[in-house]
Amino acid sequence: MNPALLDKRLLIVTGKGGVGKTTIATALALESARSGKRTLICEVNTKERVTQLLGKPEAGPTVTSLEENLWAVNVRPEEAMREYALMVLKFESIYSAVFENRVVRYFLRFIPSLQELVLLGKILFHLKEKRPDGSFRFDRVIIDAPATGHAITFLSVPQVIVDTVPPGAMSTDAQWMRDLLVDAKTTAVVLVSLPEELPVNETLELHQALKDRVKLTSQLVVLNGFIPTRFTDAELAAEQSSLVFDTMRAHQARSKLSLASLQTLEKLGLPVQLVPRIFNGEFGRSAIEQVVAKLSGADA
């Protein structure tokens, strides 16, 4: 695992839509589990993809063991709300008496950001959860977070609640969540990007927005889909056939863009980990294994 993440217990994987957040989060989780850390990977109220990528049956809203040291969950608002309510209220009977009440349901639905809070709350609860022997139930929790705009909203919810909601169970919970999120010893944000102009620019903006608005410092950039240089200028210059030349030029254009993207991202002053573009007919377990190999390779 990349040295920047080694001692972090909470990894938040985010980036522009379509850059491969889930792929990278899944690969990191697999890598973490194999290093002997009990690892939980969380998707946030989405169409579940992690288990599918790993070739496992769907996990759903309950923490499900996938293989040695690896668990997955897709946190959903309804179940998370129920778990949260039970934690605050302690008794199932009170929960059903009160929370099945339509007036109450109405209120809970519209208390701003409560839904996001319970989703995040469930994830962070698992981070604090202990086993009977006092050790953590999970050594590491990895969040496959929403894309840029939604990620900022999602991650700033605890702060928003601390700022806007008067004292009560909700604001107390928001407070510890906020503290945990901004604790750089525990938490690391992993920004995933692609070697194209728009994703790279968005990565720069996201880094800044997380820093300014959520007080979260990113620790690592993963440049996914990197295309290494293959054809030299001399080879291009010598090529006679226009068909072949076009192929070489197209490849060179993409590899140049990869290099330029890398140089731009390096300006952030964070380590940038390259994951070369994977060419694999099926996008599933074998592709993930290739990504894990690339991620681990960088350790050496």
């Binding site: 309510a85 605050v88 209220l89 009170i94 009160v98 109450v104 209120f107 809970l108 208390i111 409560l114 909601v165 008067p166 004292p167 009560g168 169970a169 909700m170 604001s171």
Partner: peptide
Amino acid sequence: TIARFTGT
């Protein structure tokens, strides 16, 4: 009960 959640 709601107030236990959100504060009065």
